[in-house]
Structures are given as structure tokens and as C-alpha cells.
């Protein structure tokens, strides 16, 4: 139950990108193929979870004054580990994401969660928080990739899916993806920086619309309930 509420919070109501507005750079820079998006999302998820657990575990012994420095060191450590492992075992991902892997160190999501959540919560809760927030981040990256890849080059699942010899997942980034329409008809401008800003802007706008609508609905429901209660109270009075 706790996991489900946290999941809803991470993916929708307190999404790290769409609500907390953190970690924009990588979101716009690398979301050109599904392979990059999934790779980056999972890397962040792993690093975030590890850092959360680690920070929560040592939260009682670190001195208040230098906590940020310690967070940064811990984060940099995990980021370097992931960076080295990617270089050794998934070199295609490492070269596609380039400098954005080490830059996860300054991704505000991780230090933000450490400061806002893990400092005050147990290891277990921080673990769940890491997973759910990481999933929220990954979801937005995947959404960005899907939109930019589909409209930009008419493709689905570039780098991750290969259908030349039957459907299979390619973990080394070589799959050509599923071509839904010829890439000549795609708006390749969406693959450029312009597309990154625009796509994220539109997703943000849609999100705000949805949040506002649900808030309005809630408000209307509350008002109706209040009115009913008032009417009931009046009846009792009479």
C-alpha cells in the first residue's frame, strides 16, 4: 500500500521532472532514441536508489555542517561506479550518453531527494523513494523519447528493438527500431535542441492542464459535499 502511494507520488503527483522541475539537462539532451532514454533513466534509478539507501543509513552519524559535501561525495562515488560499469559492459550506451553520465552527479534530483527525504527517513522508506522517484524520472524520459523519435524520424524503439530477424531486444544499441513511416517525412527538427525544449514544454503544459482539471474536479466534489453537509445541518436545525 505504501509502495503504491509512493509510486503514484513519484510518477504523477510529485514527479521529479514535471512537478519538482529538477534535472532538465539530460531530459532534453539525450532523449532522441528510446535506447538512450531507457539507459539514462535506469542509470539514474540505480544511482538514486543506492544514494538514498546510503544517505539514510549514515544519516545519524554525519555532522550537520558538512552534510551536503558528504552527499556529493557519496553521489559522485556511485556515479563513477555506474560510469565505469557502463564503459566496460554497455559501451554503446556509454558513448551515446557521453558526458551526461558523469553529470548525473550534479543532477538536482539526487541531491534534492537526499536533502529532502532521506535525511529524515528510514533506510526502507528511502529505498522505496529511490525506486519510485527513479521510475517517475524514467517514465518522463521514455515519453520524451517516444514523442521525439516518432515525430522526428518516424521510428519506434530505436537502438532497443530490432525486427530484421524477428522481434528481439538489442541491449547493445544496434537495433534499428520499427520504422512506422519513412524518416524523410519526419519533422527532424524535433531531434534538434529546439525539439527538446518544445517537447518538454508541451508535456509540461499538458501535465498542468491535467493537474488543474483534477484539482477542479476535487474542488467541485468538495464543494458539493460541503453544500450537502450544510443542507443536512440546516435540516437538523429546523
Amino acid at each position: 500500500m505504501y509502495f503504491r502511494t509512493k509510486l503514484k507520488e513519484g510518477v504523477i503527483t510529485n514527479n521529479p521532472i514535471l512537478v519538482q522541475q529538477l534535472g532538465m539537462c539530460a531530459t532534453m539532451a539525450i532523449t532522441t532514441t528510446l535506447f538512450n532514454g531507457v539507459g539514462m533513466g535506469l542509470s539514474v534509478l540505480i544511482i538514486l536508489t543506492c544514494c538514498n539507501v546510503c544517505v539514510a543509513a549514515i544519516r545519524k552519524i554525519i555532522p550537520e555542517e558538512i552534510r551536503l559535501a558528504i552527499f556529493v561525495v557519496v553521489i559522485a562515488g556511485f556515479v563513477t561506479i555506474v560510469d565505469l560499469l557502463l564503459q566496460a559492459f554497455i559501451p554503446a550506451l556509454s558513448s551515446a550518453l557521453g558526458v551526461f553520465i558523469p553529470l548525473i552527479v550534479v543532477n538536482c534530483i539526487i541531491i534534492g531527494r537526499a536533502e529532502a527525504f532521506c535525511q529524515k527517513n528510514t533506510v526502507g522508506a528511502s529505498f522505496v523513494d529511490g525506486i519510485t522517484q527513479g521510475l517517475g524520472y524514467t517514465c518522463v524520459l521514455i515519453l520524451m523519447c517516444l514523442i521525439r523519435e516518432l515525430l522526428g524520424s518516424g521510428r519506434f524503439g530505436g537502438g532497443l528493438i530490432d525486427i530484421t530477424n524477428g522481434f528481439r531486444f538489442t541491449m547493445d544499441g544496434t537495433g534499428a527500431g520499427i520504422q512506422l513511416f519513412p524518416s524523410d517525412y519526419g519533422a527532424s527538427i524535433l531531434n534538434l535542441p529546439f525539439g527538446g525544449f518544445l517537447t518538454l514544454g508541451v508535456i509540461f503544459g499538458t501535465m498542468q492542464y491535467a493537474l488543474k482539471k483534477s484539482a477542479k474536479k476535487k474542488e467541485a466534489a468538495e464543494q458539493a459535499a460541503a453544500a450537502a453537509a450544510a443542507a443536512a445541518a440546516k435540516e437538523v436545525d429546523e
Partner: peptide, 16 residues
């Protein structure tokens, strides 16, 4: 619905 952050991103797109 684009108020605040989204409209900034869209204008940043145009500057880009």
C-alpha cells in the same frame, strides 16, 4: 495551461 514553466520552455525552444 502553459502558464509559468511550459511557456518558458516553448520560448526557449524558439531562441534555440
Amino acid at each position: 495551461n502553459f502558464e509559468g514553466f511550459p511557456i518558458c520552455l516553448v520560448s526557449a525552444a524558439l531562441v534555440a
